[in-house]
Lab assay of single mutants.
Amino acid sequence: TRVETATETAWISLVTALHLVLGLSAVLGLLLLRWQFPAHYRRLRHALW
């Protein structure tokens, strides 16, 4: 049971790290898009909202 718990903890930390990385890359990508294509971003936002 001790090994299982350790594996579970490792998986949880791995998944958390993955989610953090994905979230950060998504935010960075959005910022980059907004910085590179302001007109396109505004049009996209206008279409979405």
Rank of each mutant, 00 (worst) to 15 (best):
F37N: 01
L32Y: 04
A6F: 10
L20G: 12
V21A: 09
H40A: 11
H40E: 08
S25L: 13
L31K: 02
Q36T: 15
A26L: 14
V3P: 01
R43E: 06
G29K: 03
E4Q: 08
Y41G: 06
T9I: 14
W49P: 04
S13M: 13
Q36S: 15
T5W: 00
L28R: 03
I12W: 07
V3H: 01
A39N: 15
A6M: 14
L28G: 00
A17R: 01
H46F: 06
A6T: 14
I12A: 12
H46I: 06
A26E: 01
L44Q: 01
E8S: 04
T16C: 13
R43V: 09
V27W: 08
T16G: 12
L28S: 04
R45W: 04
W11F: 12
T1D: 07
R45M: 05
R42C: 08
A47E: 05
L33N: 00
L14R: 01
L33S: 02
T7Y: 08
R43I: 05
V15F: 05
H19D: 00
L14H: 06
G29T: 15
Q36R: 15
R42P: 03
L48D: 06
V15E: 01
L31I: 13
A26R: 04
R42L: 10
G23I: 13
W35M: 15
H19S: 00
R34N: 05
V15T: 12
L28F: 09
A17T: 13
T7N: 11
A6K: 07
S13Y: 12
F37A: 06
A6Q: 09
H19Y: 04
R34F: 03
S13T: 11
R2F: 09
L44S: 03
T5G: 00
L24Q: 12
A39H: 14
A10C: 02
T1G: 06
L44G: 03
V15Y: 04
L20T: 10
V27R: 03
L32K: 04
E8Y: 05
L33W: 07
I12R: 12
R42N: 12
A10M: 10
H40T: 09
A17K: 00
V21E: 02
L24S: 07
W35S: 15
V3I: 14
T16D: 02
R34Q: 02
